[in-house]
Design a protein around this nucleic acid. Structure first.
Length: 379
RNA sequence: GUGCCCGUAGUUUAGUGGUAAAACUCCAGUUUGUGGAACUGGUAUCGAGAGUUCAAUUCUCUCCGGGCACC
């Protein structure tokens, strides 16, 4: 039911064209994966999400476990029937929430460090709001504070009930401020959990991706890729951060991919600013998810072929051009920047919808353009 | 016409005889396995003029503008 075939390997880079086959259809790769954390691409219907050219969405185990709970989703026939999305779906394991609700929230930082931090996390440190042990992670619900426990077995049980086409093994995403000792210990745990995830997998209809971690340390990344690559996963996800620069990221991705089985699909977790997309695809990424187009769309920022536009700026009010003259989406075919700027400034909900729609279309079209150029041998 | 009260940032308001503070707005940013969130900067000749004083946004007077009451 699940399969991946590389239909072309680029001669100019490590990029490749592929077809990811799932019980709910085929994904042409490289592909951008919009984020639908709570079984919705925020502000859009599933039909609109499809109209933006989206092929595959990623939902979140932690969030859906809390609300509405996997039992409810299962009663509706699983995620696809629940949210009426007919195409492929993947679920993230909750491993990222170990970071984002732990050290991330405590230190007020994202997984990518924008400037040097004097906060240092070392082996034995625990985040304030949750407890990480070899058995699993004890969370406090960000909604009502109640305790909940996730480990590989529990995450897989939930993901099994949710029923996405692709599941992700439960890992720990270490903070970007973690030192070598912390990442090494954390990685050993993530590796142990990877085996437990495979043992806990029940469904044959659902594929399972193992997660490569190792932070910004090249030897740990290599070790992780070799270890995870040897296990019986249908594909691989690359998590965490890779160091300060974009260059460090692409260098690290190549190191990782050299140690992974070349015929299996690779998903890069949570990376995908427009300027990242070409480099990561050239490094050999098949799919990647990112909140940026939807997240920024809701904050009044549109991505275009000429960079990003902050539509809240008053200079756009009298602008009669579309967001992007070279974009073929419904929004660009219909509305002037001035109207969109007005909606953003007036905080009309429609602004969030139109910018989200355009941004997703832009990202999907951007990926489609890169696929075409790989096919033509230009990338 | 007479009496009383009030004029401080775009707006609504603090405040003090030693050259001003907050909220929202506005301007500019940040945002990478998702709070429609949060955060960081920036923006004032304290209605005008004169007087008292070492020093006035603060006290006094005149004018201008607004409000209320009375005739």
């Amino acid at each position: 039911m699940f399969g991946f075939s590389v239909i072309k390997n680029s001669k100019k880079s490590h990029a490749r064209l592929g077809l990811l086959e799932t019980p709910h259809g085929t994904v042409e790769t490289p592909a951008f994966v919009p984020v639908a954390t709570q079984a919705a691409v925020k502000v859009l219907t599933e039909k609109e999400a499809e109209e933006t050219g989206s092929q595959l969405l990623i939902c979140n185990t932690y969030h859906l476990h809390l609300r509405p709970g996997e039992k409810v989703v299962k009663k509706h026939g699983g995620l696809h029937a629940f949210m009426q999305w007919k195409r492929p779906l993947m679920t993230d394991s909750g491993g990222f929430q170990v970071f984002s609700l732990g050290f991330g929230r405590e230190h007020g930082m994202g997984k990518i460090l924008k400037e040097k931090s004097d906060i240092s996390v070392t082996d034995g440190d625990q985040p304030a709001k949750l407890k990480i042990t070899d058995d699993g992670v004890l969370f406090r619900s960000h909604i009502d504070g109640r305790e909940l426990f996730l480990n590989p077995r529990e995450s897989l049980r939930i993901q099994g009930a949710l029923g996405a086409d692709i599941m992700i093994a439960f890992d720990e995403c270490p903070p970007p401020t973690a030192d070598y000792a912390y990442v090494k210990t954390s990685l050993a745990r993530t590796h142990r959990w990877a085996k437990e995830s495979l043992d806990a997998k029940r469904s044959m209809r659902q594929a399972l991706y193992g997660v490569v971690q190792g932070g910004r340390f090249q030897d740990l990344r290599e070790e992780s890729a070799r270890f995870i690559g040897k296990l019986g996963f249908e594909g691989f996800a690359i998590g965490g951060e890779f160091g300060a620069s974009k260059r460090a990221m692409t260098r690290m991705l190549r190191v990782v991919f050299m140690s992974l089985p070349p015929k299996k699909p690779r998903h890069l977790l949570g990376i995908g600013h427009p300027e990242d997309i070409l480099p990561i695809i050239k490094s050999g990424v098949d799919t990647f998810d990112c909140i940026v187009p939807t997240h920024y769309g809701r904050r009044g920022i549109a991505f275009t072929s000429e960079g990003k536009l902050n539509l809240a700026r008053s200079m756009f009010l009298e602008d009669k051009q579309p967001l992007d003259a070279s974009c073929e989406c419904f929004v660009c075919g219909t509305y002037a920047r001035g109207y969109l700027a007005h909606l953003v400034r007036a905080r009309e909900i429609t602004a969030l919808r139109l910018l989200t729609f355009h941004n997703l279309h832009f990202f999907n079209a951007f990926a489609a353009g890169i696929r075409a150029r790989i096919r033509e041998g230009k990338i």
